Amino acid sequence: MKRSLVIFYAIIIYALSELMWWGYMLVHLQPQRTGMILGEGSMFIIVFSAGAYFLHKSINEERKLHEQKKNFLLSVTHELKSPLASIKILLQTIQKRDLSKVQILDFVDKSLMDIERLDDMVENMLLASKIDNRSYTYPKAQFNLSVLVDSIVNRLQITKCDCNQQIINAEIEPKIQITGDKFALTSVVTNLVENAVKYSKPCEVVTVRLFSKDERVFLQVADHGIGIADNEKSRIFDRFYRVGSEDTRNTKGTGLGLYIVREVLDKHQASIKVKDNVPTGSIFEVVFGLT
């Protein structure tokens, strides 16, 4: 990519140099046509410069996408390897040691949690791939969103913290019915809650609220984590994009979660916006119409 940029800039410099040289020669040979030569030359330079600028912008965007894809592959490799290694160790421990039934059940529970994490990631990648190539059809039916959100919160709930504090505080209005793709919306809720937990400190409270108001349904996921800078709020829903730089980022992830969230909500005529939480963190607010 760097070599392509060097060649691109060299061609631009060469073309401008040749243009200026031939312009000088024409003015020198036909001084009576200086005005026309300068006018046409200026117009050519403007058009040429505009084309070079947009081409440069396109190359830069392609370079950034290439870097994001490379980082995505590295992230996926790490995301797959970590739970697999954990499951392997747990199963080997059960196999090689004489454990009590309580210990075995505890290790099995931990293994199942890692398997669910892997399952979520694989489902995310498959759904993102289908969305990207426009092969996903979004089959819609009426279902109970309250039950869906409650089940996801319970599955992602972490109660074994050093501070012995429940990490997800759920305020769910019962019996909220909507029409939509239950599978895709499961991914939306899961990604929003997982992101809130991921970017929060251990045992920090994450609040999930689901309620209806003025013929609309609101889903709010609030955390007290690192927050999102204003200049990044418009980019976090882009495919492969992740908050922060690759050198300083400590959180795991593939950069597909919020991309899926935006694409799925667009197909449900629902909106999502990001607000700053007080004193720290972010609030993701999803609004559905009751149609």
Score class of each variant (00 low, 15 high):
residue 185 L to M: 12
residue 151 S to D: 13
residue 87 I to E: 03
residue 99 L to R: 10
residue 286 V to Q: 03
residue 6 V to Y: 15
residue 14 Y to I: 15
residue 181 D to E: 04
residue 79 E to V: 08
residue 104 I to S: 09
residue 160 K to Q: 15
residue 49 S to N: 02
residue 186 T to R: 07
residue 260 I to Q: 08
residue 275 K to S: 06
residue 214 D to P: 02
residue 228 I to K: 02
residue 32 Q to T: 06
residue 194 E to N: 13
residue 16 L to Y: 15
residue 46 I to H: 05
residue 134 R to I: 05
residue 42 S to Y: 00
residue 68 Q to M: 15
residue 128 A to L: 02
residue 175 K to T: 01
residue 1 M to H: 08
residue 24 Y to V: 13
residue 152 I to S: 04
residue 138 Y to C: 06
residue 288 F to N: 12
residue 39 G to K: 05
residue 100 S to A: 05
residue 41 G to Y: 06
residue 75 S to L: 04
residue 117 R to E: 15
residue 98 D to M: 08
residue 235 R to T: 11
residue 260 I to N: 15
residue 22 W to R: 15
residue 52 A to F: 13
residue 137 T to L: 04
residue 48 F to L: 06
residue 177 Q to Y: 11
residue 58 S to P: 00
residue 44 F to Q: 06
residue 49 S to L: 11
residue 132 D to M: 08
residue 206 V to M: 07
residue 228 I to D: 03
residue 162 D to S: 06
residue 223 D to T: 04
residue 258 L to H: 07
residue 118 L to H: 06
residue 166 Q to F: 05
residue 186 T to E: 13
residue 214 D to T: 01
residue 284 F to C: 06
residue 226 I to H: 05
residue 58 S to L: 10
residue 165 Q to L: 11
residue 24 Y to K: 12
residue 201 K to E: 10
residue 240 F to K: 03
residue 139 P to E: 09
residue 186 T to S: 14
residue 189 V to Y: 02
residue 183 F to I: 11
residue 6 V to H: 13
residue 271 S to I: 02
residue 171 E to P: 00
residue 269 Q to C: 11
residue 51 G to D: 03
residue 139 P to Q: 08
residue 161 C to E: 06
residue 156 L to I: 07
residue 49 S to H: 01
residue 243 V to W: 02
residue 168 I to G: 03
residue 192 L to V: 08
residue 58 S to Q: 11
residue 60 N to K: 08
